[in-house]
Design a binder for these strands. Structure first.
Lengths: 114, 114
DNA sequence: AAGGAATATTCCTGCAATAGAATATTTAAA
DNA sequence: TTTAAATATTCTATTGCAGGAATATTCCTT
């Protein structure tokens, strides 16, 4: 869960989340990321550093370029963390069931004209 | 995805995440939350306000107490947002596990399911 | 070797958000 | 009706963090 906690705080920053969204479609260089997000290069580098230090991204060197891409682990961590809330999520279906029962009851009363 | 984005930024704060962790096991009052997290009551109230405004929690009034509990929706939003990264997660799985390659081949021979 | 491109780093500033302290509000109980 | 408990709110102060600007570093090209 530590890994998931980390990911949450790192992805809480809008630009970093945007970077992750960008990289979902494939790897990109720093310049490409800065350009597409319309942020300055140093800011992109800083966010990329934080993302990499927290193991959300990994870098590959290509001459004087750095190519960043997503690592799958943090997303898997987030998923298994979310699994621990399944009980709560299922509760919602319970509510839906209750609602459906209410509808059925109303339907019954209608049909039997009480 | 907007809902998921919101949840991410709200849960990026450690105390708020801790509150959510606490409430996973059931509803609690403000005082109980403050006590268990060893934070002061006003701070607890403030975080609870933010969590409620962002629809991560819901409140129920009981006399002069307020009972907070989790809402399932944000977690479902996070889950479906994570689903959009499944491709990336599976990619890494390929590299690590030969068994999946076997499955992939079987899938290829089967071709179109439903 | 020199210049330029891509990226990282450092230093500084400003701001937003969190914590702290004090007070207000609501409700129950005596 | 006074008191106490639970919570919310307001105001202030502090700090962490993101952004800006300038510079450093690395690598390619000529």
């Amino acid at each position: 869960m530590n890994q998931a906690m980390n990911a949450l705080s790192v992805l809480g920053e809008p630009n970093r989340l945007a970077i992750v969204e960008l990289l979902r479609d494939g790897e990109l260089t720093v310049g490409e990321i800065a350009q597409r997000l319309e942020i300055r290069q140093p800011q992109a580098s800083k966010h990329l550093k934080i993302l990499t230090e927290n193991e959300i991204l990994e870098v590959k060197a290509d001459a004087n370029r750095r190519i960043y891409k997503l690592r799958p682990e943090p997303f898997q961590s987030l998923e298994s963390w979310l699994k621990t809330f399944q009980k709560i999520m299922e509760e919602r279906y319970d509510k839906l069931d209750d609602y459906l029962q209410v509808l059925q009851q109303k339907d019954k009363t209608k049909k039997s004209k009480k």
